[in-house]
């Protein structure tokens, strides 16, 4: 659709504003994997309430938006249970090992011109491109 890129830009600006608010207000990097991971392995338990409140907003707000504006939302995710579990494990382990994901290394890291953020983003996009190319061409699992 022609409006996709406008929505992408608008949504992107909102993501950037959310990260700016978190940084300037609370002095923290808005990285999804770090916020979740610090709770899951209890490595950063001292800021647990901030993280939980952030996640509550992250879960509730999109659903409330969908409800109020009757926005059509569909993840169109695969129904293949093995792929979902394998991908979830890889994303969980990989982002914690690399200490960041698309929001932390990508949005916050690149905008700070962090070498680690830029390097991480190059590696995960490269791996993602190769994976999708293999899926589509060899397996045809996704349309």
């Amino acid at each position: 659709m022609e409006t996709d890129w406008i929505m992408g830009l608008v949504g992107g600006l909102m993501i950037g504003l959310a990260a700016s608010l978190y940084l300037l207000g609370n002095g923290r990097i808005m990285g999804a994997s770090g916020i979740i991971g610090g709770l899951v392995d209890k490595s950063e338990w001292s800021s647990a309430t901030d993280r939980i409140v952030f996640l509550i907003g992250l879960i509730l707000a999109p659903s409330i938006y969908i409800f109020i504006f009757e926005f059509e939302a569909d993840t169109k995710a695969t129904t293949n249970v093995i792929i979902l579990i394998l991908a979830g494990l890889l994303v969980g382990f990989g982002t914690r090992l690399a200490n960041g994901c698309t929001s932390g290394h990508g949005v916050c890291g690149i905008s700070r011109l962090s070498i680690r953020g830029i390097a991480s983003t190059i590696f995960y996009i490269f791996a993602g491109v190769v994976t999708v190319a293999l899926l589509r061409n060899l397996w045809g699992a996704i349309q």
């Binding site: 890889l90 390097a119 993602g128």
Partner: peptide, 20 residues
């Protein structure tokens, strides 16, 4: 950083979902 990012990228490509 490299190993983690690559594994994350494979998972991201497989399902199309990242943590956020």
């Amino acid at each position: 950083l490299i190993l983690g990012s690559v594994l994350f990228g494979v998972g991201w490509g497989l399902a199309g979902l990242c943590p956020g």
